[in-house]
Each structure stands twice: as structure tokens, then as C-alpha cells.
Simulated scan of single mutants.
Amino acid sequence: MHGVELFLLGRTLMKIGETAMPEPEGGSGRYGGSTRVVLIVASDVAAHPDSAVGEIASRTGLPQSQVSTSVARLKEAGAVVTAPDPADRRRLLVRQTPEPSARITEVRASTIEDALAAALEDSTPEDRREVTHALEVLARHLSPRSPARVRTGGNAPQTPR
């Protein structure tokens, strides 16, 4: 496998993940418009608590307006809180809420079976079990907060910006 194949696989996995996300109650369309952008921002906030919107935009490569919109949607969902920066009261610092919101709990409780079945439409149940197992192995080794990475002290690979 080369870098382009890995990149394209990652995009495919992101689309399957977006499909697996439950719709919010009373919502039309995906939460916050662009699920992908909201998840990128949420991931950055988890890795870098007490960051300003501009810092998140700089790290993610997203436009500041998209980061601001995503932070507002995450705040509305109860996933993040904001507070004035003590060093510069004009800036807001963003961090995850100490306790998961109802929406976070709902998303974490969702499963990938239906989304995976749709992505692998001509597959057998055995094929889907094999892919699910492979994804669990990848998650165990590559997810930033996985117990295996914490235990071994592994760091996620850094990508140049």
C-alpha cells in the first residue's frame, strides 16, 4: 500500500463513519451541516484543550469561519465549553465538557454495522465480521487515546502542515 491508497482508504472510512452517526433528534440532515468538519474540530479540541478558534483553524487547516461554526454547534450539543482567555479577554478558549453530553453518549452508543453493510453491499456476514475485526485492530493501534498506545507510549504520526 502506498500513501495515496492509504489516504483514499481513510476518506472511505470517514464516509462510513459519517453514515454510522445517528441523526440528532429533530434534526434535518447531519448535525451541524458538515459532520466531517465538526468531528475534525472536536478531535482537535480533545487533543488541545483550552485552544482559541484561530489556533484550531491553524492546526486543522480549516477556515476560521468553519471552526467558529463548528465550535458553536459543539457548544449547542453540550460537547464543549468556552471561556475567556485570561491573557486576552477578547479570545475564547475551547475545551471539552467534563462529562459527555447526551449527544456524545448517543453517538458513542451507535454502531457501524448498517453503514458497513451498505458500504460492502455485496459482502457476506463473514466478510463484514473480518472487516470489523480489522477496523478494531487498527483502532487499537492507531487511535490517539487507545489503551495500547497509552500503554506503549506510542505517538500518532505527525503530518507536515
Rank of each mutant, 00 (worst) to 15 (best):
P125Y: 12
D127K: 02
S146T: 00
S28V: 12
T105W: 02
A47H: 15
G32S: 05
R59L: 03
S68W: 01
T152L: 11
S110I: 00
V94T: 11
E23D: 07
Q96L: 11
A134L: 03
I40Q: 05
V80A: 15
P125D: 01
A47E: 15
V131N: 11
L120D: 07
A148P: 15
G54M: 08
L138Q: 06
S28F: 11
S51E: 15
V81F: 09
A52V: 05
A52F: 01
G27I: 04
D50R: 15
T19Q: 08
E99N: 10
T132W: 01
T105N: 11
V37A: 01
T132D: 05
G153L: 09
R161W: 06
D44L: 11
R59W: 02
P100K: 03
T19A: 05
T124K: 02
I16V: 14
P86A: 12
R129W: 13
V53T: 01
A87M: 09
V107Y: 03
V67H: 02
P144V: 12
S51K: 02
P160G: 04
S58P: 08
L39Y: 06
G3V: 14
R103T: 14
P98D: 10
V38F: 04
E126S: 00
T152Q: 09
R36M: 04
P24A: 05
P63K: 03
A52L: 13
T60K: 02
R149E: 12
E23H: 04
L9C: 03
V53R: 03
P100H: 06
H133L: 03
D88G: 10
R149Y: 13
A79S: 15
V41F: 00
H2A: 15
T97I: 09
L8T: 08
Q158I: 05
S68Y: 00
S143Q: 12
G54D: 14
T111W: 10
M21R: 03
A20I: 05
A139P: 00
P49V: 15
E106S: 08
S143L: 11
A115H: 06
I112P: 00
I16A: 02
S68G: 06
P24V: 06
R59G: 10
L135F: 01
L74Q: 14
A57K: 04
S58T: 10
V81D: 14
Q66A: 02
L116N: 12
T12D: 04
I112C: 05
E18M: 07
T159N: 05
P160L: 13
A119C: 09
P22H: 03
V38R: 07
P100S: 06
Y31K: 03
L6M: 13
A20V: 06
T12H: 09
V107D: 11
D127E: 14
S28K: 08
D88Q: 08
A139K: 01
I112S: 01
T111A: 11
R129D: 14
R91T: 11
V81R: 00
A20K: 07
G26M: 06
S123G: 10
K15H: 08
T97E: 08
D50C: 15
T132I: 01
L120F: 03
R91F: 05
V80E: 15
R95K: 13
T69N: 01
R145M: 11
F7L: 12
I16E: 05
K75W: 15
S58I: 07
R90K: 10
A134M: 04
V150L: 11
